[in-house]
Computed example of a mutant assay.
Amino acid sequence: MSSTVPTDRGGSTGRAATEAFLAHRNLLFTVAYEMLGSAADAEDVLQETWLRWADVDLDTVRDRRAYLVRITTRQALTRLRTLGRRKESYVGPWLPEPLLTTPDVAEDVELADSVSMAMLLVLETLAPTERAVFVLRDVFDVGYDEIAEAVDRSPATVRQIAHRARAHVAARRPREVVSPAETRGALDAFRRAVETGDLQGLLDVLAPDVVLVGDGGGVKQAVLRPVVGADKVARLLSAGTGRVDGAVSLHPVQVNGHPALVLRLDGELDSVVAVRIDDGLVTGLYAVRNPAKLSHMERETALRR
């Protein structure tokens, strides 16, 4: 996978292009990731963005940030349509690729909300252009005229798309989360119950309508359809700890700006479980086991708005 760090092409123009790209790289990655839900594909989009940006005459560019966002959006839209076809043949549920995020992501509440696993799954229900418009307008506050250029629509049409997408997301978006202290308390209780196979402990911390989604990608064993309900999820988790060979450890981490757990078997990364908590109870569990989606859990990823 490319690091998408451009090579300086030399000369003042080449250096200016490189500096502009690097200055906005984390923003561009965040735009691509929110549109795609895949860090690997977002990195590829950034590589394609750099190749196009390096050929641009900078003297004709009034706003370099806006121009880079426009290139990234167009490349991400092309990739999003390809990704949609890949998902059709994906084995089991598809979950976004988890990111081990820097502490400042959690501090930016709006950014953390926009990249949460729950929100990214809501964005999956939008059409590609709707997703691009929503992300650019509601997350990054890009102007309608700029969005129109990025998605090849008129500003009036973009406003209509934004209104429709906003209503769609509002009807499905996660509820407001509890305070950080309550979140940590619920996560700690959940972790202890899983580690000890404590069925009652799990029932105490799981919401009645909790949903567990697993993504093994056909490579690792995972539930092939969502498991709904505290009793079913608790029994599955408490029984699972007794069926694993080897030493199991669970460690709290920040994934996509929210509390999560990393599960290791004999010290090796096995799964990432993103946890959604509402009103002090666990309402969503998103377990990613597909090894191809765990490469961004070995180092922190910086996201920017």
Rank of each mutant, 00 (worst) to 15 (best):
V272N: 01
Q221H: 09
D215E: 03
D266I: 02
V194Y: 01
L224K: 05
V282E: 03
A171G: 04
S179F: 11
D231F: 07
R264C: 14
A274I: 05
P174W: 04
V233C: 02
L224N: 04
R172S: 14
T196W: 03
E268A: 15
V194E: 04
G257K: 02
V227C: 00
L269H: 07
P180S: 07
Q254F: 13
R276M: 11
P252G: 09
E195C: 02
V210K: 06
R192W: 09
G214M: 02
G218K: 06
R175P: 02
N256V: 13
V262S: 01
G267F: 00
V275S: 05
Q200L: 10
P226C: 06
V272S: 00
V219A: 01
G197N: 04
P180C: 06
D245S: 13
D245E: 12
D204K: 08
R172I: 12
L203H: 10
R192D: 15
R225D: 10
R276Y: 14
L263I: 09
A230G: 10
E176A: 07
P174E: 05
A207N: 11
T183P: 06
V228I: 00
E268Q: 15
V272Y: 00
R264P: 10
A274R: 07
V211H: 07
P180H: 06
V282Q: 05
R192V: 11
T196S: 14
A171E: 13
D270T: 08
L265V: 14
L202M: 03
T283H: 12
D204T: 11
V275H: 02
D198C: 00
G217H: 04
K220D: 07
L203R: 15
S249I: 07
V205G: 05
P259M: 07
R235C: 06
D278E: 15
V219T: 04
S249D: 14
V253P: 12
L224M: 03
L203E: 14
A239V: 11
D209L: 01
R243V: 13
R243T: 14
V273E: 03
R264T: 15
Q200D: 15
A193I: 06
G229Q: 00
V282D: 06
G242I: 02
H258C: 00
D188Q: 14
R172F: 14
A239I: 10
A207T: 08
A274C: 09
T241A: 09
N256C: 12
I277W: 07
L224A: 03
L212M: 10
L263M: 11
D279G: 08
E195R: 07
L187K: 02
H258L: 04
D215H: 05
V248D: 11
L236H: 03
G267Y: 01
L265F: 09
D245M: 09
P252M: 08
R264Q: 13
L199Y: 12
V205K: 02
E268V: 15
A207L: 11
R172N: 13
V273N: 05
H251I: 08
G284L: 11
A230L: 06
D270L: 08
F190K: 09
D215T: 05
A234W: 03
R184A: 13
G201M: 04
L269N: 07
G267Q: 01
D231L: 11
